[in-house]
Simulated scan of single mutants.
Amino acid sequence: MATDVGRLTRTQGLTRRYGTRTVLDSLDLEIAPGEFVALLGQSGSGKSTLLRALAGLDGDAIGGAAGDGLVAVPAQVSVVFQDARLLPWQRVLDNVVLGLDGAAERGRQSLAEVGLAGRERAWPNELSGGEQQRVALARSLVREPQLLLADEPFGALDALTRLKMHALLRRLFEEHRPAVLLVTHDVDEAIALADRVLVLDQGRIAAEQRLDAGRSTAEIRAELLRALGVTGDGP
């Protein structure tokens, strides 16, 4: 997949407000090309607001937040939401290549990559929740993103399906190597998938952990939970 290997995803002094409430507070963030970053935080910490800012979906024209600061992203950005957001009146392949002219063969290849070869003519309501999220991933991949933004894409799935989707997403990441920002509430999901895990608190980065061979998963997990305000005695 073609990528602009020199282009960082970056925010500098990023501030977003809803009325009098500051959701992102002069946030500085960098994501390197080909890096997988997971973003944790309690509800209301600004995770989804940051993702929308990077996706260019938080403008005043759509009732979004006011604010300022620098946002720099690659030319090709795709978003995967918790809800697959498939058009029920379009078949699976048509959903994957929506808005792309002459991309049917690429769409079939993307569906094959996510394990849905042969389901091109199915309707969305004929698919399970996990299969619908696979279609959403295929729809993102067919656009050859340099940055993939994922807003709790597995939050509505059962535990076994989540594990299967984790393995699929990690495999697709290794094959395509976009930069990824995964928003999640799940510490174990973040550790399983990411190269680097950030904790967002009150609109700022409160903690950062890199996944490397020199530290145990248990140690990293405990430090992330502490940063989230969770101890052995509960929050």
Rank of each mutant, 00 (worst) to 15 (best):
D4L: 07
D4I: 04
R7D: 05
L8N: 12
R10G: 03
G13N: 15
T15C: 11
T15A: 08
R16G: 05
R17G: 04
Y18Q: 07
Y18M: 01
G19P: 13
T20W: 12
T20V: 13
D25E: 04
S26D: 14
E30N: 11
I31H: 11
A32M: 09
A32I: 01
P33V: 04
G34S: 07
G34M: 08
G34F: 10
F36T: 02
L39R: 01
L39F: 03
S43H: 10
S43I: 05
G44K: 11
S45I: 10
L50Q: 03
R52H: 14
A53G: 08
A55L: 05
L57T: 06
G59M: 06
A61Q: 14
I62M: 03
G63M: 11
A65Q: 08
A66Q: 15
G69R: 13
G69E: 07
L70Q: 14
V71D: 03
A72K: 12
P74F: 03
A75K: 15
A75T: 13
Q76K: 14
Q76Y: 06
Q76P: 00
Q76R: 15
Q82R: 05
R85D: 07
L86R: 02
L87S: 01
L87K: 02
P88D: 09
P88L: 00
P88K: 06
R91I: 03
R91L: 06
V96C: 00
A103Y: 08
A104P: 00
A104W: 07
E105V: 10
E105N: 02
Q109A: 13
A112E: 13
E113V: 00
L116E: 07
P124N: 02
P124I: 03
N125L: 03
E126T: 11
E131S: 04
Q133G: 09
L137K: 03
R139K: 10
L141H: 00
L148M: 11
L149F: 12
L149I: 10
P153C: 03
F154T: 06
F154P: 11
G155T: 10
L157Q: 07
A159F: 10
A159K: 10
T161G: 03
K164S: 12
A167Y: 03
A167C: 03
L169C: 12
E175N: 08
L182R: 04
D186Q: 04
D186A: 05
E189K: 05
E189A: 05
A192L: 07
L193Y: 05
A194G: 10
A194Q: 04
D195G: 12
R196M: 08
V197T: 09
V199C: 05
V199K: 09
D201E: 04
G203P: 06
R204I: 03
R204V: 12
I205S: 04
Q209E: 15
Q209Y: 04
L211P: 11
A213S: 14
A213L: 11
G214H: 15
R215L: 00
R215P: 00
T217I: 11
E219I: 02
A222H: 15
A227D: 07
L228D: 00
L228V: 01
T231G: 05
G232N: 05
G232H: 01
D233W: 09
